[in-house]
Simulated scan of single mutants.
Amino acid sequence: MNFWNRRNRTIVVGAVPVVAVFSLLGLPSIPGTNIDLTVPYAAEGSGPTFNTLGQVDGREVVDITGAKTHPTSGNLNMTTVSVRTNMTLAQAFKRWVTTDDTLVPLEHVFPSGKSSEEVQRQNAAAFASSESNATISAMNYLRKPLETMVLEVSEDSPAQGKIEVNDIVTKVDGEKVTLPSELSDKVKDNKAGDEVTITVKRQGKEKDIKVKLGELPKELRGDHPQGTAFLGVTTVAQPGGDIKVEYNLTDIGGPSAGLMFSLAVVDKLSPEELTGGKFVAGTGTIDASGKVGPIGGITHKIAAAKEAGAEVFLVPAKNCAEAVHEPPEGITLLKVDTLDDAIKDLKDYNEGKQADTCK
């Protein structure tokens, strides 16, 4: 690690006496109190990486049933960032000096006014959304039909006792629904107190259900105005018919696995291998249309992938400038803006053609 290229000399010189004083005095807390001298910073570094074509705890990371799958080889690794908090000044400085970790203000990890539990719930929801979007974008690429399934019914919501988990929502007031976003939009076209007819497929039979919409609770409102209609179901997109896609990674949060999940689905359902037997890693959010979005901690993720043995890394286009600032040797950084881009870049790379790289 080239320390002086990565750190600010002025800040280091100014910080050394402070850290030295606390270290020499051996003060773990404020004298006369039980208060630890922790700093309002978090350390971000390289986290674990998982092969989306492989297994975890004896289960396929991406498990597809109800359709013919094809053999895969190589790796399509998703990458993560590790986060350390509750550090003393000396611990933070040590990580800053002796590792490649980046120190960021604590509010970047735990936004002001939100508890760690709230952040964890948001990260879990974002991860679930990335799984849903990965499925949608892969099915769209493969030109396979989609449907909207009820994953959860909120307690004391208008839907409770009427709509059930595993119901397939097919229509709202007679208008066809394919994606969760379409269901959400059709509900919000109404007002709290309006009655709507939700058509669901349950155990193979269609059923019309009349539901009087409630008002979106304040804690879920976000940017929506007061009086926004509320049904009270959490839905996910899934392939139509018999195809089922299940993602079996736990204790991972955030939306940045979306691209690699989508590539794994495409690879397993396509006769041609995407990796060409190579160790490919990457990151990036993905939306239902297959658009790839930027993420945080790109340099840490590339470093983790290189350490694991990757020779190719898929970088969201908007992360390229940061990725090439100090790129590690021996790994090719492919620039991707969409799922189609990622598949084309991998094909070009495997065939020895000029692929679109971060410059």
Rank of each mutant, 00 (worst) to 15 (best):
E273P: 05
G297W: 15
L263M: 14
E273V: 03
L249H: 13
T275H: 12
T283W: 00
D251S: 15
S256V: 11
I295F: 12
G297A: 10
G258L: 03
E272P: 01
I298W: 05
A304C: 03
A281V: 08
P294K: 15
T283E: 03
P255E: 09
T250R: 15
G282N: 02
M260C: 02
S270V: 07
A305G: 11
I298V: 14
L274C: 12
I295Q: 07
V265S: 05
V280M: 07
S256M: 15
I302Q: 05
L263W: 04
A257F: 15
P294Q: 14
F261S: 00
T250V: 14
G276E: 11
F279H: 15
A281L: 11
M260P: 04
V292T: 05
G297V: 06
A281R: 10
F279D: 11
K268Y: 04
V292S: 02
G284P: 03
D287E: 04
T250D: 08
G258F: 03
K268W: 07
G284V: 13
A281H: 11
G290F: 09
I298S: 12
L259H: 05
S270F: 06
L269W: 00
A303Y: 13
S289L: 14
L263F: 07
F261K: 00
M260S: 04
A304V: 03
L259D: 01
I252F: 06
L274E: 02
L274Q: 02
P271N: 07
I298G: 13
G290D: 02
E273A: 15
V266W: 04
D267A: 09
G253W: 04
V292K: 02
V292H: 02
E273S: 13
P255L: 12
V280T: 05
G284A: 12
L269P: 03
E272N: 13
P294V: 08
S262L: 03
K278Y: 02
T285C: 08
D251M: 10
G254R: 10
F261A: 00
S270W: 06
A257M: 12
P271A: 12
A305F: 01
L249S: 14
G282Q: 04
T299M: 14
A303G: 03
T299Q: 15
T285P: 04
G293K: 13
K301D: 01
T250A: 01
E273W: 03
S262D: 06
G284D: 10
T285W: 02
A288G: 09
G290N: 10
V265P: 05
I295T: 11
V280D: 11
F279Y: 13
I302P: 10
K306C: 06
